[in-house]
Design a protein around this nucleic acid. Structure first.
Length: 468
RNA sequence: GGCGGGGUGGCGAAGAGGUCUAACGCUGCGGUUUGCAAAACCGUCAUUCACGGGUUCGAAUCCCGUCUCCGCCUCCA
């Protein structure tokens, strides 16, 4: 088994990965909230998690990847104020909470599929695991980590001394910030484990509990479901960097207190994708891009996956259309180049020479060095330029890396343009003119076609029209 | 105020003490090809790594200081 180095937020260092069970790895990924579309920033995080799990597959591990679906509405504010985001969505779309969750869960997986994100082995919904969550809160209550207020059951963070270690939280500094409404909380960092339904209204999503009708707090689902599917102690937990100070900090607190043992060995966090003009990519701001926007522009979602691969996952990434288009060009050329080398032949039986294996070693080294996909991609291009390996070996090597990259190197075909009959007729007229060597007329027709937003490519097999 | 990530060619982005006169991709430029283009292919494009000091035989990489950009700390991946 090769050594895989991963940057662990817990130690703030890259460490050689060692699994709890030899040859196996358990990964938990904080999944999407399904009261709205996942935007491309969210998708960057899921592409990262996908690359992580596929890297372990590639290295020969037996992977158990779990990702939750947060389908319970939580508050827009950590205090008592704020609206339930699910309620906001319901009002926006005139659907009940269950239908909102169902709708956006489906859209999420459609988008993920377009990005070649493999569905994790388990994708549990919070609402299907209410019992596990209640059990866990009860356990915490029995051990004396909780207290009740008029609006819910809270975790008392003053009961543990290393609270906030993951985030290197400076509790006094937080106090100074004073940005969170204390409500009836005893400590600023205390958080809800169970919230009561409002007395005067019925929620679409609410459940009975030993403490009263209500719904789970927003951290408990990950603790309860990770324990259910991966055990109380598992290998890797992933999420966005925004989760470090609050969500993951609280998961650690409640999981370790409930189970009395270490929760997670490696914490991995993806940096944010930002919009270049400074606009924030967030669901609540209402304005954000989804995978659909790429397709509307005639750009393959895989070009976005490629773009994400060209930057290290721990680096902030500014999104702008120019870099996406550059990525689309690079992606397309890479695929066409390799496909030409493969020449439609089966690569299964291709034996790799010593030189080819040396190239593979370099690519793997980058991949196993904290998922340095950018460097690995560079190595792929260097390999393609090398003159010590055959074309089929190159294609084979590229296809092997593609089990992680998943940018369809061997099968990608640019989206076909819908060529209107009018343009098709103009193309034929141009071909006729060229045949007659009436180049003035042919060029004029080409200009007209160009003006309509199409590009003509004259190949040996004839002329084709593509969207410009 | 607290925590964190950056500033490398026109753009994106690797590199984290010597193999760096700095990978790779995009763009540009020159060429091959083409009726001319486009596409493709070949070649080419930073003696320099925000700035100022320092450590070292040696620094883009380490240390100190300065400037500067960005993110999180409030639901967010």
């Amino acid at each position: 088994m090769p050594t895989i180095k991963l940057f662990n937020t817990w130690t703030r260092k890259a460490e050689a990965f060692k699994s709890i069970t030899e040859g196996e790895v358990g990964i938990y990924t904080c999944g999407p909230t399904v009261y709205h579309n996942a935007h491309i920033g969210n998708m960057r995080a899921f592409i990262f998690a996908d690359v992580l799990r596929r890297t372990f597959d590639y290295a020969g591990y037996k992977v158990n990847h779990v990702m939750n679906i947060t389908d319970v509405g939580h508050l827009t504010d950590d205090g008592d104020l704020g609206e339930d985001k699910m309620l906001v969505a319901m009002r926006r779309e005139g659907l009940n909470a269950w239908d909102i969750a169902k709708k956006y869960t489906e859209v999420f997986f459609e988008h993920a599929a377009k990005l070649n994100i493999r569905k994790p082995d388990h994708v549990p919904c919070a609402t299907d695991h209410i019992k596990e969550q209640i059990d866990m809160v009860q356990k915490l209550e029995e051990k004396g980590f909780t207290y009740k207020t008029s609006d819910g059951v809270y975790f008392d963070t003053s009961k543990i001394d290393d609270y906030g270690y993951l985030a290197r939280l400076d509790i006094d500094g937080l106090q100074a910030g004073e940005r969170v409404d204390m409500g009836e909380k005893k400590n600023l960092t205390d958080f809800a484990l169970w919230k009561f339904s409002p007395k005067d209204a019925q929620r679409d999503m609410e459940w009975d509990s030993p403490w009263g009708v209500g719904f789970p707090g927003w951290h408990i689902e990950c603790s309860a479901m990770s324990a259910r599917y991966l055990g109380e102690h598992f290998d890797i937990h992933t999420g966005g960097i925004d989760h470090i100070p609050v969500h993951h900090t609280n998961e650690i607190a409640q999981s370790e207190c409930a189970h009395g043992k270490k929760f997670v060995n490696y914490w991995m966090h993806v940096a944010f994708l930002n919009l270049k003009d400074g606009a924030k990519m967030s669901k609540s701001s209402g304005k954000f891009l989804t995978v659909d926007a790429f397709e509307d522009e005639g750009i393959s979602p895989l070009a976005y996956r490629y773009l994400c691969l060209t930057t290290h996952y721990r680096m902030g990434m500014d999104f702008d259309w120019d870099s996406l288009k550059a990525a689309a060009t690079g992606h397309r050329r890479l695929c066409e180049r390799v496909q030409k080398l493969a020449d439609g032949q089966s690569l299964d039986s291709v034996e790799l020479s010593k030189a080819a294996l040396a190239h593979k070693a370099k690519i793997d080294e980058a991949l196993f060095d904290d998922l340095n996909t950018a460097k690995a991609l560079g190595q792929v291009f260097t390999m393609l330029d090398a003159d010590d390996v055959s074309g089929l070996e190159k294609a084979k090597l590229a296809s092997l890396v593609d089990s992680i990259f998943c940018i369809d190197i061997l099968s990608y075909a640019p989206p076909k343009a819908d060529v209107p009959a009018e343009v098709q007729a103009m193309l034929e007229a141009r071909n006729a003119a060229r045949k007659d060597r009436d180049f003035a007329k042919a060029d004029q027709l080409r200009d007209e076609i160009t003006a309509l937003g199409f590009v003509i490519e004259d190949t040996a097999q004839g002329s084709v029209v593509k969207r410009g």
